[in-house]
Amino acid sequence: MIRSLLLAFTAVLLLIPAAAAENENNYQFDNEQQRTTYQQLTKELRCPKCQNQNIGDSNAPLAEDMRDRSYQMLKEGQSREKIIEFMVARYGDFVHYQPPFTTVTSILWWGPLLIVIIGIGIAVSLTRKKKAAVELTQEERQRLQQLRKSGDE
């Protein structure tokens, strides 16, 4: 008896989060593909009001509007790219977590590479300097040989 009660209780507990996620918005999707795209969009679109949350996480009314709009556009058969384009046209590049490649943002890609190249350059030049210091002149070599000879004796 107790065991079956416990089992039922656990089952209910396990179902609660799933039910909550579904009821949060009464969105009905035409297919699994559409649902996946929607979930992907709510993760990669950023809420302009509460700046470090995506629109899926945020409770701001604006995030809700953006979720609604994404849902509506998906239902109209628009693609993920079109929806992102739509949001960026109104709220700017800020709204998408993946910034586009422009002259301004290119530093994000090239910056680290540049630093690595500079680092390698410094390392190479430092090791070269050390080698150069070891090289001896003609006189020094003769002197070294003399010293070695005298050492042998």
Binding site: P48, K49, P61, L62, D65, R69, R90, Y91, G92
Partner: peptide, 12 residues
């Protein structure tokens, strides 16, 4: 409903 504001990119 904030529809016009959405077109303007109003966020607050």
């Amino acid at each position: 409903k904030g529809k016009i504001a959405f077109e303007f990119g109003v966020y607050g």
